[in-house]
Amino acid sequence: MAIIKLPERKITDLKDVCKSFNNEKGELINVLHKAQGIFGYLPAEVQEVIAKELNLPVAHVYGVVTFYSFFTMTPKGEHPISVCLGTACYVRGSEKVLEEFKRLLKIQVGQTTADGKFSLSCLRCVGACGLAPVVMVGEKVYGRVSPDGVKDIVEEFNN
């Protein structure tokens, strides 16, 4: 099978994670969460290791990874930007905010800028509807974002 290069230290971490869940099949989703925490994303190699550790077919692991939108197989940008497209944000114009991010960063949803700095995604409701439209950059939540405010958010991380 594939020849894979992963840092040894991280592989050890990953195996420890599996062990901490007793290598149980039923803990797959918890393991994937932690693995994404370690690697930032879930490349095929990581899924192979998890499959082996939990004694699951790798196709099954991949089936689970592709089912949940939280899991990603492509590395995200240094500052992952998520625009909320929940209903409250939508009716308050989050689509225009998204368009502005696309225009400014010259990327589409699901892509990462060439310098690896930003990636753009949509999400469905962070539950901060009072602040609609909402944008998240990493863990930081920006509320009441207007298309004009997009520039400032990007600037903040560009320096």
């Binding site: 409250a88 944000c89 469905r124 409701c125 539950g127 901060a128 509807c129």
Partner: peptide
């Protein structure tokens, strides 16, 4: 697993 967009009762 409050997934309805625009709902945040459970979170609160």
């Amino acid at each position: 697993d409050e997934g309805d967009p625009g709902a945040f009762m459970d979170r609160s």
